[in-house]
Design a protein around this nucleic acid. Structure first.
Lengths: 255, 255
DNA sequence: CGCCTGGTTGACACAGGTCAACCCCCGTGG
DNA sequence: CCACGGGGGTTGACCTGTGTCAACCAGGCG
């Protein structure tokens, strides 16, 4: 059941049997949550962290005027609020974008685990540091990239992360954000998001339908985005499997 | 010598004698670096983390076009690249904004320390999580706040952090960024930064001179910024000392 | 069948970027 | 002592990417 989590964490470091067992033991229960539900509200006191098993979730903050900013996106295998273990209260909401299945890990269990297993502690810490790195890249993106660059960059990022999690199907992957949400993640209006997406489609860079994105020209997309995957720290992993596709000018990441 | 660090970390959790000793022992050497020097270059392999004892430092990333984004600011007491302990290579540069004094902590020492002291490990982890929270607030700021709001917010943040570090002098604190750098931190042009600053000064909200900022009307500033310090997790601390000032309409944070 | 959400479009407004000049201050060197 | 050079700040004129507003369309669901 934790295969996604293990896959995710193994991009950071190898897990031995003991680590896996400790993690499995830490989980208390699995819950299902419908789409567009708030899992965690900012400032509420938390007693367990949640592990995403299936679906898409976002973290968001907003201003008094109602403007919302999505500050992070998570997919299956991500520990979505591991940071609540130490922070206790979060600075943001966590909202489901799709129906979601998730496991709870009581903070007490994490406490025990970090007391007993320094190596696993470092791996968990490491995973929060990677989140941090993603945050920094988003700051760069929103602060400096053009509208189309931000969108292209986010698509590159989510494709790579999906691939690392074994969730891609060749050049396609699930990307269930509405244009409004995509805009909120990129710090721009849904109207402008719409126009930028049209531009990417017009130029045959990506295709979208049914909540899925299909990358038609990776090189071009990465170029528009100035995408360099180093910040994702996907070291260990050299994932892939690109089932051969009907002959077409589809270009995918080389590595 | 580590008083700033201890003060900083005690806003997260209390340190006992053993913790303090362990930290002190971990430090190998102290270095001085001039202003505008690159301490760490992105992607270089690191073997120790640096603790800032004095001065201002920023983390920055840039685009091919040369546009630069400052993704974080650090002052005395901050562990500026603790995350390199696990990440090994950083995703950004670290550059001094002023002359700086800093201590090195070899990763080997951190390894030992995290092996032996789970509680201290959690505190260190916690401090990186707080950085993360600040990143998220910056994403919100750059993504959604107006130009003037971003600047006001950054000033509020740095004032609060300075205060927590015991570096304020009443309503004044050291803020040695040029307008160019301030713009780079807020994702805007130095020209626009200049105009927004003028507006804040014209309305008697802040005064600036000699690399120092003096807050004249905290309520108004926090209002423009929509500032809520919760994301800084300055829990424990109720810092202050506002030496009474010559009667004037200076308004400071209530708490 | 009719609503409601999400996508699309056009006309227009404006925050913020660009470019270019000019100023002041301060440090350096002749 | 002064000339100079360069970095930072300031200003004005102008441009443009993105926001705003409002209408309309398509598809899914009760």
């Amino acid at each position: 059941m934790l295969t996604e989590l293990f896959a995710n964490m193994e991009t950071l470091d190898v897990l031995d049997e003991r680590d896996r067992y400790a993690l499995e033991r830490a989980i208390s229960q699995v819950t299902n949550v419908p789409a567009h539900a708030t899992i965690v509200r900012a400032n509420s006191r938390l007693t367990d962290s949640k592990l995403l098993l299936d679906g898409y979730v976002c973290r968001c903050k907003d201003l008094a005027s109602g403007q919302r900013q999505i500050v992070g996106l998570h997919l299956a295998g991500d520990f979505i609020d591991l940071h609540s273990f130490l922070l206790k209260k979060l600075d943001h909401d966590i909202v489901t974008l799709t129906p979601v299945r998730m496991a709870s890990v009581p903070h007490a269990a994490l406490e025990r685990l970090t007391e007993e297993n320094p190596r696993l502690t470092r791996i968990l810490w490491h995973s929060t540091l990677r989140d941090s790195s993603v945050h920094r890249e988003w700051i760069l993106s929103i602060g400096q990239r053009s509208g189309i660059g931000r969108i292209a960059h986010l698509i590159c990022e989510m494709y790579m992360r999906s691939r690392a999690a074994g969730l891609t199907d060749g050049a396609s992957f699930s990307f269930p954000l509405t244009q409004i949400e995509l805009g909120e993640a990129c710090g721009m209006t849904s109207v402008h998001t719409n126009r930028m997406l049209q531009q990417l489609r017009r130029e045959q860079t990506v295709a979208m339908s049914m909540k899925k994105v299909r990358i038609l020209d990776w090189d071009r997309l990465a170029d528009i985005a100035e995408f360099d995957p180093a910040y994702l720290y996907l070291n260990g992993l050299a994932p892939l499997s690109f089932p051969s596709r009907p002959a077409q000018a589809i270009r995918l990441p080389a590595a």
